[in-house]
Amino acid sequence: MSLVQRLSAFLRSPRGQQLVDRGRRELAKPENQAKLKQLATRLSSRRR
């Protein structure tokens, strides 16, 4: 099995679905969105 196949199989599993749901809940929080925006800004400024 390739890595992509194993990953997609895991994401379809109950444990994978739990992790996806948890990630979505965490991303919905405003403080986490602000942290991601700061990280994106920092990373984009490094490329210049």
Rank of each mutant, 00 (worst) to 15 (best):
Q5F: 09
L19I: 09
L7A: 05
L36M: 14
V20R: 09
R24C: 13
P14I: 00
L19W: 09
K37W: 03
R46I: 11
G23L: 13
R42S: 12
R48I: 15
N32V: 10
S44Y: 01
R22G: 14
Q5C: 06
E31N: 03
R42Q: 13
E31S: 08
R15P: 09
L39T: 07
A34R: 12
R12H: 10
L39H: 05
Q5I: 06
A9R: 10
D21R: 14
L43F: 03
P30L: 04
R24G: 06
G23E: 08
E26L: 15
R6D: 07
R15H: 13
R46S: 12
V20M: 13
S13F: 07
A9Y: 04
N32K: 11
K29D: 09
P14Q: 15
R42H: 05
R25V: 07
L39R: 07
L3D: 08
Q18P: 00
D21V: 01
R24M: 15
R22I: 13
R46L: 14
S13Y: 09
L19T: 02
P30Y: 04
Q18H: 07
E26Q: 14
M1S: 11
E26P: 02
K37H: 11
Q18E: 14
L43C: 02
L43T: 00
S45M: 02
R6C: 04
G23M: 12
V4T: 06
P14A: 15
A34K: 11
L36D: 02
L39I: 05
A40F: 01
S45D: 12
Q18V: 03
E31C: 02
Q17L: 06
A28R: 13
R42Y: 05
A9Q: 12
R22D: 13
V20Q: 06
S8G: 03
L11T: 02
M1R: 11
S13I: 07
Q38Y: 00
D21E: 11
A34H: 04
L3P: 00
A28Y: 01
K35E: 01
V20N: 02
A28F: 02
R42G: 05
A34C: 02
R25W: 13
L27F: 14
Q18C: 07
V20S: 12
R22T: 14
S2E: 08
Q17P: 07
Q38R: 15
S2L: 04
L7T: 08
